[in-house]
């Protein structure tokens, strides 16, 4: 699930379903997202370094995965497509 501005940018209606080879990790998932929607390159993470943008957070199963190593396997429920992986724009500003 992407934040509204990125769904608008990529012309996505609702959730995105991605086919990712096992083991499913945050890095692989985001690489597949950017491969399928090149317009998102650089909007979630830095295109050169792969570093998460400062105002972006990642969640799944109620857990904050933002600071987990990107090559750690995602929870089985996310890898199987039962639970969403959430890309969230931080609430900032007034």
């Amino acid at each position: 699930m992407l934040p509204g501005p990125l769904r608008l940018l990529a012309k996505i209606d609702g959730e995105v379903e991605l086919e990712v080879a096992a083991p499913v990790t945050q890095r692989r998932l985001l690489e597949e997202l950017e491969r399928r929607y090149p317009v998102l390159l650089g909007t979630v993470r830095d295109a050169q370094t792969g570093k998460r943008r400062d105002f972006i957070r990642f969640f799944a199963e109620g857990q904050d995965l933002s600071h987990k190593p990107p090559d750690d396997p995602l929870p089985e429920s996310v890898a199987a497509g039962r639970e969403p992986y959430l890309v969230v724009g931080a609430i900032a500003g007034g």
Partner: peptide, 8 residues
């Protein structure tokens, strides 16, 4: 551009 999502 966006402080959240960078440059397009």
């Amino acid at each position: 551009t966006s402080g959240w999502f960078g440059q397009v």
